[in-house]
Amino acid sequence: MAHTEGRWTEAQPIVSLKDVRKSYGTVQVLNGISLDIMKGEVVCIIGPSGSGKSTLIRCINALADIQGGSIQVEGQEVHDAKLDKLALRKKIGMVFQQYNLFPHKTALQNVMMAPVKVLKENRVEVEKRARELIRKVRLEGKENSYPGELSGGQQQRVAIARSLAMRPDIMLFDEVTAALDPETVKEVLVTIKDLAAEGMTCILVTHEMGFAREVADHIYFTDKGVIVEHGPPETFFTNASDPRTRQFLSQVL
């Protein structure tokens, strides 16, 4: 709790939530969530619809504010009036269910825009990096296509490349395959798996249980704004003790 920026080391959690509470009006959405994520870990959050998974993930990069508790990213308190939002967003990349690409920009321009406009980096260098990222998400040849000309899976991979162009330390994925058809789900999951294998810290909200089991170091099950159960996939899927978790798993597995 007391560590401040500059003193953070990799031995400490890269993301640390303590008793996070969040409400919309009178609706309590997060009811005291605590979790610690170490650098390079891949964490999956699962749970029924409306249990606050998206809200949780949006609080981590300050897209939503919290009413109680604390969230620290690399030792820096996120919900602090003095927070440097740009510094935080440079550290955290985010990918959404609906891709949310800029429809008036080509795939390449989408990837380049934030480094050029936000970080004011050199355009030539950014372009080189952007082309590499597009290759990395296996979309070479689509650089000059507009989002409207790409399939859902391709758009989602552009969105991943766009986030990576900011060279984040942490990636947040909010049901990024939920809007895709089964064939394209795989190509996006492969991309995420590559990232995880490279040591990127990933926090994923997902309904893909097979995938969670395969890539996750740790799985959290949320319901009604609290973490009901968590553990490494081996024990989580086979030895879940909480009845709600068991019921949920029996429905989705």
């Binding site: 740009l86 967003r89 985010m94 949310n100 406009k117 936000v118 766009r162 900011m166």
Partner: peptide, 17 residues
């Protein structure tokens, strides 16, 4: 769409940008 704006925000764009 609000979600497009949120994506820009998450990438570090200011309101004006």
């Amino acid at each position: 769409p609000k979600s497009t704006l949120e994506a820009a925000e998450a990438l570090g764009f200011t309101r004006l940008q």
